[in-house]
Design a protein around this nucleic acid. Structure first.
Lengths: 335, 335
DNA sequence: CTGAAAGCGCTTACAG
DNA sequence: CTGAAAGCGCTTACAG
């Protein structure tokens, strides 16, 4: 059974297509009798307007859809961003096309191209590594584009980020304050800009106090890699008395390792990124928390403000981080 | 700067629109010279095909987009479903419109209507409470529709669920095996079918052994409600020696309460739904786990099989659950 | 191998 | 208040 079209409704109601269009769009100035006839026909045929077709012809060409490109819709950080954007989008009657890129630049391009082909009105992108210069055409086409979580490379556009360097510095300062002088760093792929910034913050904090950087392990991307890295650190000569774990999966892997070594109550740990149940572990996990809800809301709002016609120079918007103390970061250095 | 159209490309390349169309769609039988001219024009104008417009005219009318209606894109269960469906969709070159309904039937209808208006090729719905009979028109329109997580009401369609009743029974059996005779139940809103099934499984297990149902608390929907409910249970006369918590937020709230009562190592607990870090708590949390990845993959596959033309009578597909023992459920009754 | 005409489902810009 | 004609960006169904 084929879907009924506006034409079918017009024929059944014995009016012109234009009149059906008026009724569907709630335009004023249609006789109540015709409204009734059209409404009845719509009901009878189970007619559903084809919004896609109407947006093709409509003056502004808007599809009331935006595209959201995330690292992985299933990870808590991404999905919280996603939900925040959805809430803003819903206020504007706009639907969301969402997808995951898993750190793969090729997937990022493919996804954005898919979304662009579906004529999204705007785009929010958490960029993978690599260059986003290929998006310039989008901007020239007038489609609002906002980056979130990480700054883009090769293009200037609105960007919503946190101050990763300052946040990391704060975390490491906290450990220094608790007497630690040998502080290990475990961080994500050095291809990721935010990972590099966090390492820099770690170095800043130590340099300020004239402390030699402890063991530094980069390119730790998964929980199990973090676990193995920590085992290696504590098998070595001069193990750290504290760890700064620069990403949430890394934090969790490190905790798992400390547990199996029986050191979770003696080695201090501060993680970057909050995660669910961090407060229920023993000890509770001290973290530098981002605010993905605020980030998502702001990113989406910027898109809608551009769509509403506001104009400004592309800018970087920095959302503050927050140190949440729960126990693991307050373990004093025994020495 | 307006977006270039296929016509613009045709003009610049000095060919007909049809030839541009052929090049864009990689149809064979175009002179290399014309292909080159068209390609150059596309490049020069930054032309991006309007997939929306082409699907309007294309024979099958497909938009290569499916709609996914979830309880909340940010909750771990929903987002894992989402990701699994995305992976299947990507294999088919299909994008996903996703949205959250937060248990609100009106939001469910609004979201589905939004998706239908954008001509999605198929729909996967985790239904809120209430009736889904209004979706019959979709089925008649030929749009594949699959329900996931909960069975729909008022309509017959493919459905992917777990056996909630059997899973709950399993959980409670486990507690009985460990000597418990006063087992409390804490469960979600009784308006939710799966919550009712889980309560039934709890009753089944106890009835089998001739044990009187312990304290039963229904309509516990959030973490803090669960926390308060547990405090109330243990302030009463005959507190349970074990708890069956029938949903993950309820489980977490209950654990928080047991902690603050200092009873987490003496009161046994089995939860329904696994959650991240359940193994890192002390004690580890024993759960009946669902497999949202398997559920999501199956639900999406059913949509694509229907789109490929396969036909069958709508059926209920049951994905098995699994008991994961981690400590909290193996606490013996001291009596 | 190439293109002119018609049409997908709808709205625009008019005319009456 | 209502509708006929044209057109949004593309593909179909032909004809050459």
């Amino acid at each position: 059974m084929a879907r009924a079209t506006l034409r079918d409704v017009a024929r059944l109601a014995e009016v012109s297509p234009k009149t059906v269009s008026r009724v569907v769009n709630r335009e004023a100035g249609v006789t109540p009798a015709k409204v009734a006839a059209v409404t009845a026909a719509i009901e009878k045929l189970g007619y559903r307007p084809n919004f896609t077709a109407s947006s093709l012809r409509r003056a502004n060409g808007r599809t009331a859809t935006i595209g959201v490109v995330l690292e992985n819709v299933a990870n808590p950080f991404s999905s919280t961003l996603h939900r925040a954007m959805e809430d803003v989008a819903r206020e504007h009657g706009v639907a969301i096309l969402a997808g995951s890129v898993d750190e793969d630049p090729a997937r990022e391009r493919a996804l954005i191209s898919t979304f662009a082909g579906r004529q999204v009105d705007g785009l929010v992108v958490a960029p993978a590594s690599g260059n986003q210069g290929y998006l310039t055409a989008e901007i020239l086409g007038g489609t609002p584009l906002v980056f979130v979580d990480r700054p883009p490379v090769g293009i200037s556009a609105d960007t919503v980020v946190i101050d990763n360097r300052a946040g990391a510095r704060r975390a490491v300062d906290h450990l220094i304050t608790h007497g630690h002088r040998t502080i290990g760093y475990l961080g994500d792929l050095r291809s990721i800009a935010t990972a590099r910034d966090r390492l820099q913050g770690y170095r800043d904090a130590l340099a300020d106090e004239g402390i030699r950087p402890g063991p530094v392990v980069e390119d730790v991307h998964t929980e199990s890699e973090a676990e193995r890295a920590v085992h290696r650190l504590f098998a070595a000569d001069r193990p750290p008395t504290a760890l700064f774990t620069a990403q949430n999966l890394v934090t969790i892997g490190a905790i798992r390792a400390l547990r199996s070594l029986g050191r979770q109550h003696t080695v201090a740990l501060v993680g970057f990124d909050d995660f669910p149940l961090a407060d229920l572990l023993e000890p509770g996990v001290t973290v530098v928390a981002q605010d993905p809800t605020a980030m998502g809301r702001l990113a989406a709002s910027l898109v809608f403000r551009r769509l509403a016609g506001e104009q400004w120079e592309p800018a970087v918007h920095v959302i503050p981080t927050r140190l949440i103390t729960r126990g693991s970061g307050e373990i004093q250095n025994a020495v």
